[in-house]
Design a protein around this nucleic acid. Structure first.
Lengths: 204, 204
DNA sequence: GGCCGGGTCTGACATTTGTCATGTCCGGTG
DNA sequence: CACCGGACATGACAAATGTCAGACCCGGCC
């Protein structure tokens, strides 16, 4: 006997969401009970419909997939989360697993494969795309301390040191110091290249 | 009588491409004759199948949608190009239209709507998403001169001025000058913020 | 207790970067 | 032709940034 899996679909791209819903509906044992285009909407839909599996896009307006997953973990522990992503960065995978996500795959997989994976996570198993996992392992853990990461985030939009110092409530010299040490840890020439690298690795 | 429209589908995300192909096949007058996951692959497929309409993702490995469109324009003038994009930036729309693209829409449209648009461009009409068009108009033309844009691109990865100067074969002072004027034209505090803004607007 | 080691924080100094004044070389205009 | 505006290019100076040595606190370890 096959049990029916109730699925929540969240992706800001209507084209993909609709297409996906249609394809998944072709599977006899899967039924899409709700769709959402934003993070908050996904949460609301999940509360209303209590799906078995939530398929979440990593990047959505409002709150990203991992944040939604964290909230779901608290409110609906029985709802398994499967994250799909366009261009996965190593750090995101780590954050996702820490948030209790059961599956993590790139959008380059086929719909057929996705359907299988929905069943996999629903059965209580985990699945992480091997290539993304390899990236995450080779990238390793962030070498940055808490303050370094915080300051680097504030520097992400190219703000001058004075502004960062004000936002972080630190002396300018201190900010320069953290940025410098962060850059050297990442092997970057300056803080801007450091921001770029940290982003690539998903460390900010 | 309805003529049959032969469609080429190019998108690096298998999930979306497959789903889209399935949905478009539901339309009686549309048939997907080829699929591609990269820019070069899209070109090869187009040459092989000579489709009526090419639906191209803006961001693909190898060569982006606009570049593919430019090549198609030269090789298969009868093939209409419709670009779909995740997060459209104003400048891309302008480049796309310059490349002879007939349609430009975000992936937030529904599949039903996309099918209509494929018919629209096939009929020889143009269609540009109103919101993207508004963004492009409000963003206006790039105020940057050729050199300013060139130097700004070299600065994109956070390289120090000395390196940029070498790559551009200019004196360091000159490079600083261009970066400074570019930043002031864009209303940015420094060159790094300028890079970010120029990217957002699609000017680099 | 005394002694690290590491994270946090700071100011002083050297370097890099941004700004400015200046000059040259075009293409268009009266 | 003479003139003007604008893109291109440069060096000198002022301002921001990166680097360094050092102080403080805290938790682990002989």
């Amino acid at each position: 006997m096959t049990t029916t899996v109730r699925v929540l679909l969240a992706d800001d791209e209507h084209l993909i969401r609709g297409a996906l819903a249609a394809l998944l509906s072709l599977e006899d044992d899967l039924v899409v009970v709700a769709e959402a285009a934003t993070g908050p909407e996904a949460l609301a839909m999940a509360r209303a419909h209590a799906p078995d599996v939530a398929v979440l896009d990593l990047q959505m307006p409002g709150a990203d997939g991992v944040r939604v997953a964290t909230s779901l973990r608290a409110e609906l522990p029985d709802c398994k989360v499967l994250i799909v992503t366009s261009h996965g960065r190593p750090g995101h995978l780590k954050r996702a697993l820490a948030a209790g996500v059961r599956g993590f795959v790139p959008k380059t997989v086929s719909a057929q494969r996705l359907a299988e994976l929905i069943r996999t996570v629903h059965a209580g198993n985990r699945y992480v795309d091997p290539e993304l996992a390899a990236d995450a392992i080779s990238a390793g853990d962030s070498p940055l301390t808490a303050r370094e990461a915080e300051v680097l985030e504030h520097a992400a939009d190219g703000a001058p040191v004075a502004e960062i110092a004000e936002r972080a409530a630190l002396a300018e010299g201190t900010v320069r110091n953290y940025l410098s040490s962060a850059a050297s840890k990442l092997g970057a020439e300056n803080r801007h290249a450091a921001v770029r690298l940290a982003r690539e690795r998903g460390w900010v």
